[in-house]
Nucleic acid binder design. Structure first.
Length: 150
DNA sequence: GCCAACGTTGGC
DNA sequence: GCCAACGTTGGC
């Protein structure tokens, strides 16, 4: 069992959206490191911190879980999609995704500001300068520290 | 293989 | 909207 954090802009797809649809294919990731994490790291049942970014109150807003192993992101083949990638083929798909399933919404948002105040989260990737990955690993210790704030 | 230019992310 | 940081692209 491993733990992860996945960012989403709430204007595009929020924790409430995930609660409504229950399971969502995490399409649109076009960063090799993030792809590798989904493809090689994630396993069904892993825990996911759902994080709202680029919004009024950035922070962890809910818990989800990995609901599939990695498979090709269909949007890379859709000509009209903003995620279309003409250099990818069905024989050798470049971009992968996993399904993410809703578990629960937190009682309140654990804000980025709060996370920064935790000395025990000093080496958490989210808080390190220049880390812009939309998908990143979370250690069990960090997972526990973060959720204890709720 | 270098590196400048450009695009994207994401907090503020 | 600004800007720092980083990734990608493409000319050479």
């Amino acid at each position: 069992m491993h733990y992860w954090l996945m960012k989403s802009e709430p204007d595009a797809f929020s924790i409430d959206d995930l609660a409504r649809v229950k399971t969502e294919p995490w399409s649109g990731v076009r960063n090799y490191q993030a792809r590798n994490i989904m493809r090689d790291g994630m396993q069904v049942g892993d825990g996911v911190l759902f994080y709202h970014s680029s919004c009024a109150e950035p922070g962890v807003v809910g818990i989800a879980e990995v609901a599939s192993s990695a498979y090709p992101d269909p949007t890379q083949f859709e000509r009209k999609s903003p995620y279309f990638d003409a250099t990818s083929t069905r024989e050798e798909p470049r971009w992968m995704l996993v399904d993410v399933a809703f578990k629960r919404k937190l009682a309140r948002t654990i804000t980025l500001t709060e996370l920064k105040q935790q000395s025990r989260l000093e080496d958490f990737a989210l808080l390190r300068r220049g880390t812009r990955l939309s998908v990143m690993p979370v250690s069990k210790a960090h997972w526990n520290v973060i959720l204890a704030l709720e």
